[in-house]
Amino acid sequence: MVSCSVCGKPAIYSAKYEGKAYCGEHFLEWFDRRVRKTIRKYRMFGSKEHIVVAVSGGKDSLAALHYVKKLSKRVPGWTVEALLIDEGIRGYRDVTVKDFKRCAEEWGVPYRIVSFKEEIGATLDDIVKKGAEAGLPYQPCTYCGVFRRYLLNKAAREMGATVLVTGHNLDDEVQTFMMNIMRHDVERLARLGPVTGISGQEGFVRRVKIFYEVPEKEVVVYSVLNGFFPEFVECPYARLGFRWDLRHYINLLEEKYPGTKYMILKSLLDIAEAVRKGKGGTPKRCTVCGEPSTKDVCRACELKALLGIG
């Protein structure tokens, strides 16, 4: 049996990449210390913030909401709300919405739910059908990602958010970086980082990833130890995306060579900074909807036109 590197009690988790193990109590201390360090290092919050946490009902975003709500009790100038985007995925989102509402009510967090159907003009299920009928080359995750990011910013701004927190973890970021490399999408690569988006532009809510340096596995441990690990339900479109295969390969490498994910993250930070200097793109406003964009017409309006919706 492995012992906790701090107190010697039986460990519940081994962090192989740093050669240490932790019992439940010391895992939570270690987790908290690292997240607070990330928040400080990237100057994610000020002393006065209206924080909106983007939630899906999955374990990453619930963990982000749980963590921020707990931290906010120590900061009098912070208020916390949650925002859920209902994409309209039958048999999936309805389950996670239930988990989310249960937690939000238990933790006393006010929330807003915004749906694709009302705001974009169609559910994701309908969009996927329309896209196939129109012969568009996109995977469901493309539509979902574009419209979700678009609505998160718009709704968070309407809620008066000064900062938008997402539950993205180390694994998500490493996967996105590798996807951008494999697709030669240098412009998107340049936008990656712990604090993202078209910063400083009016209409854009700054987006921060508090679990940027935390592996996905450790977010699960956090949610299990805090008793809110949600019911496991898989998005029907998840296995169709490039990310599904890629994350498995990265996980195989991490298992064989612990620390691989952190090394990729370090490369990401250096490369993204270097690329930003030359290729960042100038912030603009979309000429169709007026939302912040790096192009004349934002990606959401471009897709809506191709799909004939909205």
């Binding site: 492995v2 519940i12 081994s14 193990a21 441990v221 996980n251 195989l252």
Partner: peptide, 13 residues
């Protein structure tokens, strides 16, 4: 990397 083991409702290494 993809599954966490638990025994009797408690996480184990």
């Amino acid at each position: 990397e993809e599954y966490l083991p638990s025994i009797g409702g408690k996480l184990v290494t």
